[in-house]
Simulated assay, not measured.
Amino acid sequence: MSETAARRRATMVEVAHAAGVSVMTVSYTYGRPERVSADTRARVREAAERLGYPGPHPGARSLRRGRTGTLGVVLGEHLTYAFDDPQATRFLSGVAGVCADHGMALTLVPITGGPSDVDRVTEAAVDGFVVWTTADDDPVIDAIAATGLPAVVHGGPRRDGLSFVAVDDRAAAEAVGREVFAGARRPAVLSFPLDRDRISTVTFGAATAGTVPGAASGIDPDATTAGAASGIDPDAATFRVTRRRLLGFRDAWAKAGGEWSQVRVAVCSINSAREAEALAAELLTGPDACDAIAAMGDELALGTLRTAARLGFAVPGDVTVSGWDDTDAAAPAGLTTVAQSLRDQGARCARIALGRLTSTDRDAEVAWNLVRRASTRRSQRRRAQP
């Protein structure tokens, strides 16, 4: 074969001629091999290898079938988040398990916050979408809906025409908030991001940062104290998960007889234990040091526990701490938390996107439960009772 021919992609017609079979036989060899005898398949593949024919183009096969055999997962995060965040990893494991069971491939579609996000979504060669939680104003949600493909959103936002899977974040936050805030005088919340700007109070709490939060974040700069803000309006959060959990914590503190303006909220830009350690150091020091910290994730709570230990605080004697998700590290740390299975939720999202669940199953409530451990005082009192 000449150098020119080697550079040119061989065609199915040429393979059929070289093997002495029809073009349909070559097509069946690759797409429906059970319809071709073993000897003929071997003759076709020998000819294909000799001509340098790699097989039918995947895109052409997809057009003929009307499907790609791939499920797209849209991350409202940078791509590395899927591997760095333990909760995202569990969720994706659930999605991947269903894809494996049904012979589907999995494509991760990361969102960067840039103008290319919509194009990246609309051009994705997938049969359906699973969307990891993103903000209400994220344009990719409308872009996904416009594709007409099956799609399910995990955590938020909710959109007409798109399936939705999430725990009752507000009810769960109230339950764990009542636990961690019991007996507290100066409570605080370690929060997930409020909006797509992902401004952290580590950034604007320090005078050297030179960053002031905008009004859209719901944060009053005048109420900001060394790494936290009081009186954050939960309804201003455009991430549904953050908004619902803030509302639940507000409900819990109100039922304890407190005012929401008393609760300091420290916002993390990502679900990072390291960032939480820095924020917890601000919350636990100074004349108004907090004595109860409700974290929106176990990673944030574990960072808080490390800071408390470093500063010499007893848990729960000096400060109570709660988390969320009941990760593998929560029990050894004695962390009171909200238990939910993100792996099961990922699997459920995948089954919905692939049309494997009935309407009744799709609308079923997602399970969660409060796990009381040694990091809150109520659990201590329960163990002390005969």
Score class of each variant (00 low, 15 high):
R250A: 11
V371M: 07
R245M: 09
D291H: 07
A339S: 13
L311Y: 14
N271F: 14
R378A: 06
G355M: 01
A236C: 07
T68L: 00
T89V: 07
P157N: 03
A171H: 01
F83H: 10
I111L: 15
P58W: 12
A308Y: 04
V44N: 10
D85Y: 11
A339R: 14
V321Q: 15
I352T: 13
R43T: 11
A6W: 12
T112G: 06
F239Y: 15
A10K: 03
I352R: 12
A216M: 00
T89D: 00
R274W: 07
R159C: 01
S37I: 00
D39P: 07
A216S: 07
A209E: 05
C268Y: 13
V152T: 15
T238R: 15
P234C: 03
A276Y: 00
T133G: 11
V21H: 14
D291V: 09
A333N: 07
I141A: 10
L305N: 02
R377E: 02
G76Q: 04
F129C: 00
A333M: 11
A125P: 03
F91T: 09
A10Y: 15
P150N: 09
A364F: 09
I219Q: 04
T133V: 05
D169I: 09
T320E: 15
P316E: 03
A228Q: 01
A236N: 05
P193S: 02
A82S: 12
L63E: 14
P187W: 01
V44D: 01
R377Y: 06
A10V: 05
A124Q: 09
T201Q: 10
I141P: 06
A330T: 10
L311A: 07
V26F: 03
W132T: 11
A215E: 05
E123D: 04
V98T: 13
G52C: 13
V118A: 03
F249D: 00
I293Y: 05
A289E: 04
T304K: 10
D288M: 03
A294I: 15
R178E: 08
S37A: 04
L194R: 02
A105M: 12
G297H: 09
D288P: 04
